[in-house]
Amino acid sequence: MNKKSILQRSRLYAKTRTHFTGKGYLEVETPALADGLIPEPAIHVFETSFTSPFHPSSLCWLTPSPEVFMKQLLAEGSGNIFQISKCFRNSEQIGAYHNPEFSMLEWYTVDADYRDSIAHTEEYISAVAPSGTPEHLLPPFRIESMHNLCFSHAGIDLDKLQTLGKLRDASVRLGISESDTPDTWESLFNRIFLTFVEPEIPQDHPLVITDYPAQIHCLASNKATSPYKERWELYAGGIELANCYTEEINPDRVEEFFREESAALAARFDVPNAPIPDSPHDYHLLFCNQEKPFPPCSGTALGLDRLLMLLGGYDTIEGVILFPISARL
C-alpha cells in the first residue's frame, strides 16, 4: 500500500474543492446506482439488481459517469456544479491506465462553451499541481484541432472524407488492414487516429485536441457549418486525461441521440452476454421546459486517478489506487 499516494489524493481533493467552491461552483453528490443510463454503445457497465421482500426486484447499473444525474440538476437550475465521484466501466483493459472502478471529477459551467472550459481546466490544473510539477504537465495547453492533427500525422483532409467510401479509400492508401466486421465511419476514423495520430502527439505540454468529428456520436453540440462537434479531449504526458463538450441542449437532437444510440447499444456484440442498460426515453424532456429553460453550458470530465498519477510521477494508476483490481484478480 502506498501511503504517500493516500496523502497526495487527500491533498488533491482538498485543493479541488477549494478551487471550485472558491469560484462559486456547488459541490453535488449524485447516485452511483442508476435505473437508467445515457446510451453509450462503446461503454460496458456493471449490472446489479435491487431486491426486496416488498417490491418487485429491478435491474440497476453502476454509473459510468455522473452525467445522467448532473444534467437533471442543471435542468433544475443548480447553476455551476462539480462532483468528485466513483465511476464504473466494465470490460476495459485492466492495468496501467485503467481500473474498472475509478474516480472522476466532473464539472458544468453555465453560459460557457468548450473554449471557455479550456481556460477553466488550465486554471484548475495550475491550482492543484504541487510545486515542482514538471512543465510538460502544466499550462499553457497546446491547442490543435483534430483536422490539423490528422493532416499533419496521417496526411488526410478530414473535411473531404466525410463519407464512409472516401474514408475507406484513404485508409486503404494508409495501409489500414481490413476488419472482419464492416467498419463504420467512426471505427475507421478511430483506427486511423490510433495508428497514426495518437502515438505522435507532442508531450512537451498538455495537448487539447479540439473539434472531434460529428460522426462520433455524443452529447456535444455541433460546431456551426462544419462536420465537427464542439468537443475536446485533453492529453497530458501522452495520456487521455479529460473530455469536454459544449453540451447539446436542443431537445430534438438529444431525443435523436437517445433513439440512435439505444438501437446501437441493443445491436452491440463485441462482448458476449454484456449487460445492456435501460435508457430513460424521456430524457430529452429535460431540455423542453419553457418556464425553466435548460442553460447553455459546458461540461468537463477529468480522470482523477490519472491526474494523481501524472502529478505524483507514478508510471501507472495502480500506484495511486488502493487495492487495484489487477492485484486482486
Binding site: 453509450e40 454503445p41 462503446a42 470490460s91 476495459e92 483493459q93 485503467h98 467512426e186 471505427s187 478511430n190 487516429f193 490510433l194 495518437e198 472531434y212 462520433i216 456520436h217 455524443c218 479531449e233 487521455e240 473530455n243 463485441d270
Partner: peptide, 9 residues
C-alpha cells in the same frame, strides 16, 4: 489496448 474517448476498444 486502447479505448479512445467515446469509442470502443
Amino acid at each position: 489496448f486502447v479505448n479512445p474517448g467515446k469509442g470502443s476498444a
